Amino acid sequence: MKVQTKSKKVNKAWLHDHLTDPYVKMAQREGYRARAAYKLKEIDEALHLIKPGQLVVDLGATPGAWSQYLRRKFAPKDAGAGGAAVGELNGTIIALDILDFEPIEGVRFIQGDFREDAVLAELDAAVGGRPVDVVVSDMAPNLSGIESSDSARIAHLVELAVEFGLRHLKPEGALVCKVFHGSGYSQLVKLFKDSFRVVKPIKPKASRDRSAETFLVGIGLKPNRKRVEENWPSA
């Protein structure tokens, strides 16, 4: 009975925080599907990564807030506000997630697990040999609460995102990847530094204070561009 009461209190506290969150209110007002849009917006405004005419791959795209932000950046300024922009689009967005994705006009969506070879092959085919300007990844695994196992799962997704970037990004391209502070974080920073000329860790204001998430941004592939092998923590 005490556990149930505590659970109710936690849920009530979360609901209160969610409903009073300024980014949640802003997302509702501006038509974004999730407050996460403002994380990418802050990163982009700091580093000026997203420009009309680009090819961008959005990994871990559901529910679609990042793709909405990209869509708006690529839409003509007279396209209007509210929800995802519609009509003409100056740029290409390919989104991927294991979960369902409500369609966004002009965004090509692939449903599948990024860790599976067949899904990666489908994504490679969608890119079609074109050089990618930016890869953004908000991917995160289901966490078990066991730190060593969770660190390995997180690291594996980040490593796959980096490998995808090394294969497809333009020499001056960029990768934005969600990571978590904790065991394995320093190895992920090293992986980025081994792969990109410029590496910037950013914790957007839109990330909740209590969250361990942060974002690593790699800009400009290093000349050797060799795949980096790391000894990740074992599961």
Rank of each mutant, 00 (worst) to 15 (best):
residue 2 K to N: 15
residue 5 T to G: 06
residue 7 S to D: 09
residue 7 S to E: 12
residue 9 K to D: 04
residue 14 W to C: 07
residue 17 D to Q: 14
residue 21 D to P: 03
residue 23 Y to M: 03
residue 25 K to V: 03
residue 29 R to L: 04
residue 30 E to G: 00
residue 32 Y to G: 00
residue 32 Y to A: 00
residue 32 Y to T: 00
residue 33 R to H: 07
residue 36 A to W: 14
residue 36 A to C: 13
residue 37 A to F: 13
residue 38 Y to F: 15
residue 40 L to C: 10
residue 41 K to W: 08
residue 44 D to R: 04
residue 51 K to L: 14
residue 52 P to N: 13
residue 53 G to A: 06
residue 54 Q to L: 04
residue 54 Q to D: 06
residue 56 V to K: 01
residue 57 V to S: 05
residue 58 D to S: 08
residue 61 A to L: 12
residue 63 P to F: 08
residue 65 A to L: 10
residue 67 S to P: 10
residue 68 Q to I: 04
residue 68 Q to W: 02
residue 69 Y to S: 01
residue 72 R to H: 02
residue 73 K to L: 03
residue 74 F to C: 00
residue 74 F to E: 01
residue 76 P to D: 12
residue 76 P to Q: 02
residue 77 K to M: 07
residue 78 D to T: 13
residue 82 G to E: 06
residue 82 G to Q: 04
residue 85 A to H: 01
residue 86 V to T: 15
residue 89 L to T: 00
residue 89 L to G: 00
residue 93 I to F: 05
residue 96 L to W: 10
residue 97 D to I: 09
residue 97 D to F: 10
residue 101 F to K: 11
residue 102 E to W: 02
residue 104 I to M: 04
residue 105 E to G: 01
residue 107 V to N: 02
residue 108 R to Q: 07
residue 108 R to I: 01
residue 108 R to L: 06
residue 111 Q to E: 13
residue 117 D to T: 14
residue 120 L to Y: 07
residue 121 A to N: 12
residue 122 E to A: 08
residue 126 A to R: 11
residue 129 G to H: 06
residue 130 R to M: 01
residue 133 D to E: 02
residue 135 V to D: 03
residue 138 D to K: 06
residue 139 M to W: 05
residue 140 A to I: 01
residue 142 N to Q: 12
residue 143 L to R: 09
residue 145 G to N: 08
residue 146 I to F: 03
residue 147 E to S: 03
residue 154 I to R: 12
residue 156 H to K: 14
residue 157 L to W: 11
residue 158 V to L: 11
residue 158 V to K: 12
residue 160 L to V: 15
residue 162 V to P: 02
residue 165 G to A: 14
residue 166 L to R: 15
residue 168 H to V: 10
residue 173 G to I: 05
residue 177 C to Q: 15
residue 182 G to K: 07
residue 183 S to T: 10
residue 185 Y to V: 04
residue 186 S to N: 11
residue 194 D to R: 12
residue 195 S to D: 07
residue 195 S to M: 08
residue 197 R to K: 13
residue 199 V to M: 13
residue 202 I to E: 13
residue 203 K to W: 09
residue 208 R to Q: 05
residue 209 D to C: 00
residue 211 S to V: 05
residue 216 L to A: 03
residue 218 G to I: 11
residue 221 L to D: 12
residue 222 K to W: 02
residue 226 K to A: 07
residue 226 K to H: 07
residue 227 R to C: 01
residue 228 V to K: 00
residue 230 E to Y: 06
residue 234 S to C: 07
residue 235 A to T: 06
